[in-house]
Amino acid sequence: MRICEQDERAIEALYERYAGPLYALAYQVTGGDRFAQDVVQEVFVAVWKNAGRFDPARGSLSSWLFALARHKAIDLVRKEANVRRHTTEVDLELEEATDDVDQEAWLRVRRDAVRAAMAELPEAQRTALELAFFGGLTHVEVSETLGIPLGTAKTRIRTALLRLRDILGQSVAEMAEAAR
């Protein structure tokens, strides 16, 4: 990976490809533009400094970037008391940009596939998974928010991700790989 050699053009290319979806993820978790910008910036600095830590055996490059962004966004949410917290719902359809920001085909194809797969999940599982993933809630918080036992919350969240893997099937590796 050329980023390991701190090649500026490589990091710029990475920015062009991933800044949009990383920003969208960070915005969804933190609920704020400034916070989302901070998260994106921290992700690229972390990649710049720690590219050698990327291990392809643990998932694709894109998965690593999104995991970093989500982790940093959740950290920020927990540190900043004034950041809006998602509570009873995480609506992925609200406030979506209607311009051409998403004209890149690779992104659109994957987003459509993932959203279709998520729509196939039982509602209780989908709600728990979205609260955990996009709301940044721990399984304890999901349990409290939904008024369900802790074990049930854990099982719903984790079973939902496993089910999503089954629905997406072989295309998971293909889509994640091609997103590099």
Partner: peptide
Amino acid sequence: LADVAGLMALAAPRRRPPATLKHDVLAAL
């Protein structure tokens, strides 16, 4: 499953980062 979680991130509503962010990121680097 790490890849599924990575793909799930793409389900977030589309948003355009401000044009100034690229400059800020490169300056931070």
